[in-house]
């Protein structure tokens, strides 16, 4: 089953989904700069119809943590 969150990150960052995992963060992904971080927030909010708070965005340091935050909003991913 395809991972919707990984595909979303791959599309925004312009990298292949295979290069990403739940452990991926900005420190090990050159493409994940502040501009992309902004695009990622918008893309997540749009794709999962959620609104992220500042504290949640500050916490989202890896794809895995982003997944936890989205799950915490009742979205099954």
């Amino acid at each position: 089953m395809e991972d919707k969150l990984i595909i979303l990150f791959a599309q925004v960052l312009g990298v292949s989904p295979e290069s990403l995992s739940d452990a991926t963060g900005p420190e090990d992904t050159d493409e994940w700069d502040s501009l992309k971080a902004m695009e990622l927030v918008s893309a997540i909010e749009e794709a999962f119809a959620v609104e992220l708070t500042t504290a949640e965005i500050m916490k989202m340091r890896t794809i895995g943590i982003a997944r936890e935050v989205i799950r915490g909003k009742g979205i099954d991913i």
């Binding site: 900005p26 502040s34 500042t54 965005i57």
Partner: peptide, 20 residues
């Protein structure tokens, strides 16, 4: 730079176009 991104850029609204 990373420190400032984590603790200033994001909290001040760097992830939203209108506050970037």
């Amino acid at each position: 730079t990373r420190w400032a991104q984590r603790n200033v850029f994001v909290p001040v609204g760097g992830y939203r176009k209108r506050t970037q």
